[in-house]
Simulated scan of single mutants.
Amino acid sequence: MTTVSRETQEKLERFADLLVQWNAKINLVSPKDLGQLWPRHIQDSLQLADMIPAGATITDLGSGGGFPGLILAIATDNPVTLIESDQRKCAFLREAARICGAKVTVIPKRIEAATPPEADIITARALAPLVKLLGWARPLLKENGFCLFLKGIKAQDELTEASRDWHMTSTILPSRTDPGGAIIKVSDFKRVV
């Protein structure tokens, strides 16, 4: 598990309390997951924090309930752009960022329509197949940037499929929170022509 300072732990606890309150009105996480909120969502997102250099800018695709983007903003104190098309989820993300003192910009648009500044790192969790994520991430990523995508048991299959359309440098790292999960790190990627 990723260890954090007492101050960060307190902010994460405030986030978790707020998420539980809001989840009664809008579906941020599955109600059956609320009992596993810390290991399944918060710790899963936190494991990326160790891979993020201080000061790196992050754009999180399809932020939903704040995983992993808002958790990373709280844990790293780095500036994070959250792209989320659901207006109700955007309201939650703004309120959670305010309460937790996170450096967050929320873009209430579909990923294809968003035009944030290019970021050093692109993240996503449980959003889309890798081949689709790469298409969304490429125009949003700085030249020497990289992507961190939290994936499930089919990470290798997704990487194999994406390699038909994309040249890339990639690594699959085991998840520290889910024995069937993985983190796909991708850099230097461009479409096959």
Results as ranks from 00 to 15, higher is better:
Arg110Asn: 05
Gly66Lys: 01
Glu95Val: 12
Thr115Pro: 13
Cys100Gln: 05
Leu134Lys: 08
Lys151Asn: 09
Ile111Arg: 00
Phe146Ser: 11
Leu134Val: 08
Leu140Lys: 11
Leu127Asn: 10
Gly152Met: 01
Ala91Thr: 12
Ile153Trp: 13
Val104Ser: 00
Leu72Trp: 01
Ser85Phe: 10
Ala91Ile: 15
Trp136Ile: 06
Phe67Asp: 09
Leu140Pro: 04
Ala97Thr: 02
Gln156Ala: 14
Lys103Glu: 10
Lys132Cys: 12
Lys151Leu: 05
Phe146Gln: 13
Asp77Tyr: 13
Lys151Trp: 03
Pro116Trp: 01
Pro108Glu: 12
Gly66Pro: 02
Arg138Trp: 12
Leu130Ala: 09
Asp157Ile: 14
Pro117Asp: 10
Ile107Asp: 10
Ala75Trp: 00
Leu72Ser: 03
Asp120Thr: 02
Thr115Phe: 13
Lys109Asp: 12
Leu130Ile: 12
Lys142Thr: 07
Gly62Cys: 06
Asp120Val: 03
Ala97Met: 06
Phe92Thr: 07
Leu127Glu: 09
Pro117Cys: 07
Ser85Thr: 12
Gly62Ala: 07
Ala155Leu: 03
Leu127Thr: 11
Arg125Ile: 07
Thr115Glu: 15
Leu134Ile: 07
Gly64Tyr: 08
Thr123Phe: 02
Leu130Trp: 04
Ala91Asn: 15
Gln87Glu: 14
Pro79Ala: 14
Lys154Phe: 13
Leu133Thr: 01
Cys90Leu: 08
Lys103Trp: 06
Leu72Asn: 05
Ala96Pro: 02
Phe92Tyr: 15
Pro129Asn: 09
Val106Gly: 02
Gly101Arg: 05
Ser85Asp: 09
Thr76Asn: 05
Pro68Ser: 14
Thr105Asn: 10
Ala96Glu: 02
Arg110Leu: 05
Ala155Cys: 07
Lys89Arg: 11
Gly65Phe: 05
Ile122Lys: 08
Leu93Arg: 03
Pro139Arg: 01
Glu143Ala: 15
Pro108His: 11
Asp86Tyr: 09
Asp77Cys: 12
Arg88Gly: 06
Phe67Val: 09
Ala114His: 03
Glu143Ser: 12
Pro139His: 01
Ser63Ile: 05
Ala97His: 04
Ile121Ala: 02
Leu134Gln: 05
Ser63Gly: 10
Ala102Met: 06
Trp136Lys: 08
Ala73Cys: 09
Leu72Lys: 02
Asp157Ala: 14
Gln87Thr: 14
Pro139Ile: 02
Glu118Ser: 13
Ala97Glu: 04
Leu82Cys: 01
Arg94Val: 14
Pro68Asp: 09
Ala73Lys: 00
Trp136His: 07
Ala155Pro: 06
Ala137Leu: 03
Glu143Lys: 14
Leu70Glu: 01
Ala75Cys: 06
Leu130Gly: 05
Gly69Val: 07
Gly64Arg: 10
Ser63Gln: 06
Cys147Arg: 01
Pro139Val: 04
Leu130Glu: 09
Leu141Val: 00
Gly69Ile: 11
Thr105Met: 07
Ala75Leu: 06
Lys132Ser: 14
Ile122Phe: 09
Gln87Met: 13
Leu130Ser: 11
Asp157Met: 15
Thr76Cys: 11
Ala91Tyr: 15
Ala155His: 03
Val104Asn: 00
Ala126Cys: 11
Gly135Ala: 06
Lys151Ser: 08
Gln156Thr: 14
Arg125Lys: 13
Cys90Met: 08
Asp157Cys: 15
Asp77Glu: 13
Leu140Tyr: 06
Trp136Ser: 05
Ile74Arg: 03
Lys89Ala: 02
Arg94Leu: 13
Leu159Gln: 08
Ala91Trp: 15
Cys147Ala: 11
Ala128Asp: 04
Leu133Met: 06
Gly65Arg: 10
Arg138Phe: 12
